[in-house]
Amino acid sequence: MGDTKRSAGRGSRLLGNRAVLVSTTSTILFFIAVAVVVALAPGSDIVGERFLNWVHLKQSLLGTATAPSVAEAFLLNVRMFMIAEAIILVLALVIALVRGVPGPVFFPFRAVAVVYTDIFRGVPLILVLYMIGFGVPGLGLGYVSTRSDITYGIIALVLVYSAYVAEVYRAGIDSVHQSQTAAARSLGLSRWQSMRFVVLPQAVRRVIPPLLNDFIGLQKDTALVSVLGSIEAARAAQIYGAEQFNYSAYVVAALLFVLVTIPLARFTDHLIARDRRRREAGGAAPGALGTAAGAPHDVPGAIG
């Protein structure tokens, strides 16, 4: 008996087990309740047949003689967001840096950066898609006007999301205390060197979670490129649905999107949690840099 009392570790572990039990039970009850409500709905049979028909789920995923495979079409989404993300990471950083360049000479550059972010954060993506996808070909500019819908789609995604991500970067840069810049400049580093070696590494680390968040949004928004005629997953699902009078293809497309966003979302959560752990530990674990955190006894930093 006394043994149980003494061992705080065992006590909290019991508590942990109970918490898991409670949460599991409540989760199961919750989903049973939802399932019951859905099953009791007057149209549940029809909706089930239309959206969750096993044959149609499989058939739309793999494609038929006349309808494209949703899985194959989804590869286009993946290609679009991979290319867009790579460009956005760089372009947004350039915009954020341009916005922060001091000096009257650079006023026009700063102004362009401000106007750019204002406009492309304000205009709905679908309108940018229309304007780029239908406007640029209409200009008759030879090479520029004869690119594929996919290219115009990627350009529109890059334009809109770079504006968002530039603001994310800027917030990160602003969050690094100016005493860091003062210390870097006092060593004789130039403004750019201070930015590159001292401010940016800290800023980027801090904005990784919101940045990944924007990328999750981007991955979903590749579906909007279908308005230009590209057959990506959502459009492929639509074609299948129109042909077979069955919407299971939409569920397939939705699952594919979730499949790629969930790992990214979990990764974001992981980074946020790690960041919080670091702060709560008084910064004793420089985990962001991948070094092995030492045993607690060699952490004298706690005193300060």
């Binding site: 005493s179 860091q180 003062a182 210390a183 870097a184 006092s186 060593l187 004789g188 070696f197 001292v198 590494p201 800290q202 680390r205 910064g283 420089p286 962001a288 840099l289």
Partner: peptide
């Protein structure tokens, strides 16, 4: 580069 300065709050680079 020719003048060193040390600050009250250390200002070391944490990363």
């Amino acid at each position: 580069q020719r003048i060193g300065i040390v600050f009250q709050a250390f200002n070391l680079f944490p990363h």
